[in-house]
Design a protein around this nucleic acid. Sequence first.
DNA 1: GCGACAG
DNA 2: ATCTTGTCGC
Length: 260
Amino acid sequence: MVSTFDHDPSAAQRELWKNEQIALSARISWHDDHLDFDSETLEGLKYVAGVDLSFPENDFEHALACLSILSWPNLEVVHTSYLKTELHLPYIAGFLAFREVDPLLKLLNQLKQEHPEYYPQIILVDGNGRLHPRTCGIACHLGVLANIPTIGVAKNFLVIKEQDSGEELTMSHVKQECRTELLKRGDYHLLQTKQTIYGAALRSTNEAPNPIYVSQGHRVSLATAIKMVLACCHYRIPEPIRRADLDSRAYIRQLQQHHQ
DNA sequence: GCGACAG
DNA sequence: ATCTTGTCGC
């Protein structure tokens, strides 16, 4: 029995995925907020969500997807939902959404059916949004498919190289800039080329010198995305994503113990 | 051929 | 993506 999981997808498959990302990216308006709350004061915001996938030890084909709903401005968990899922593709940098977005969409649809009162007004996604080779990371993917405002938050920098201009944002260059420029909570460094603003490296706490990488997903401006993420950061990782990560990992450990 | 790139 | 352990500072 040959599993598709064992092999990298063909170059042809990757070209199809690239075209899909380019088409999705074209559907996003990058300049404006399309929110149902005030982007300046955050007045009217009630619920903010975080999504993440956690994996059992040494098993990257099975995952527990998690959707955490937090109240604003208290940032307390009011609802958590999980979905055990089987993954059919390996992780490939630049194509994360094709591996992970389906279970997240299912969780959102399920919440809308069963607990519409908790349906979030904006989602923080573990991964990039516009900060992506084709300006279409998983946060964009999820936002467009579910038609909901999203923001991408990555813990590591994804190298960007522009096809036409040849201009690139390299790991070492960005880290260098961050060390010298990001001195306190709220300081950020724009990640941009001559033609595109991809996102920002943000120092989210005074204690954590390593930045997080914030970018627009869907229906949100970069300025609002940065403000929103910073407002959600008690620690380096914003609370909605942090809770989805912690709670799903705890639940996996519980499942494994109960199964023995 | 080599290096490297979210999760 | 996962795990463990130790260390520092309040």
